[in-house]
Design a protein around this nucleic acid. Structure first.
Lengths: 152, 152
DNA sequence: GAATAAGTGGAGAAAAGTGGGGAATATCTC
DNA sequence: GAGATATTCCCCACTTTTCTCCACTTATTC
């Protein structure tokens, strides 16, 4: 699992350093190349390829007769790239993905369970301040909807 | 289980000593790295990684297609860091977490069952004086709500 | 009250992140 | 198909941050 938050920057060539801690985890427990895809809420998801493969299996097991399923599949795969780490531990983000995710120079890289999320710094902050709700409240909402709670 | 209360301080680099007793327990019975996260009531929770992993598994099992679930997951992981003990038995608390927990120079470190809590000293004291209620009264309240009682 | 352990502080070494030049590869044009 | 242009990818160098190490102070223990 990936944990922690890092503030890095994208250079003119579209390169970003992946935090060393994540790099180590990938090398020790996962397989490359990495898969970079446009995720939810206008940020990028970065997966080790073994994890991504499971997602693809689920995607392909969905009912393709359903038009909404097909659209979902296509929308995901449309914006998916394979990326490798260079010898400084960086990946290159294609202009297309940079644009789709609205990435400027400053980015936030967050470990989020089985994936790494890459956010434009401003977008990240507004995501968390605009809809700033206490953890307690969020938990309560989920609980009200019957989504299982978590024991801390 | 972690027990006891300690008064330590944070230095300019954001380092805090973890009480030696806790360090021993972690080394003998648990796995590193440690996971530091913003908990309830504006204090930090410190978990050995094996304990934290159970929480992450629950987080992972939630439905990520639901926007509120994502927000919940991100709100937790946003304020979650991996930390290691240095050779003096200290951890570094990131500026973000220090700010979120309102940590000044003096902190209180409390063993609380399966986790270690880190409080700003003032916040800790006002938490316990403002809402000062006898243990008997607190127990009664829980009992009234049908929350199971405890056999002492 | 001495001896030991625990906690605190700071300097130097190491690692991580950043930027840019240039070689190799690919693409395009004529 | 050759040359020109563009792109990618190494590699090196610099800056900043992090970590390690050593020394000192405070607290416990016997």
């Amino acid at each position: 699992m990936f944990r922690g938050i890092f503030h890095n920057s994208i250079d003119e060539k579209g390169r970003v350093s992946i935090p060393a801690r994540f790099r180590d985890q990938i090398q020790n427990n996962h397989s490359t190349p990495l898969v970079l895809t446009l995720g939810f809420d206008q940020c990028l998801f970065l997966y080790p390829s073994d994890t991504w493969q499971k997602i693809e299996e689920k995607l392909s097991s969905m009912d393709s007769l359903n038009a909404e399923v097909r659209q979902f599949q296509r929308t995901i795969m449309r914006a998916t790239d394979e990326v490798d780490l260079d010898q400084q531990g960086r990946i290159v983000i294609s202009p297309v993905l940079r644009k789709e995710a609205g990435l400027g120079k400053s980015v936030v890289i967050v470990g989020l369970l089985n994936r790494i999320e890459i956010w434009d710094k401003q977008k990240y902050e507004s995501y968390h301040t605009q809809s700033s709700q206490s953890l307690e409240l969020l938990g309560q909402k989920l609980s009200d909807k019957g989504i299982q709670d978590i024991a801390f």
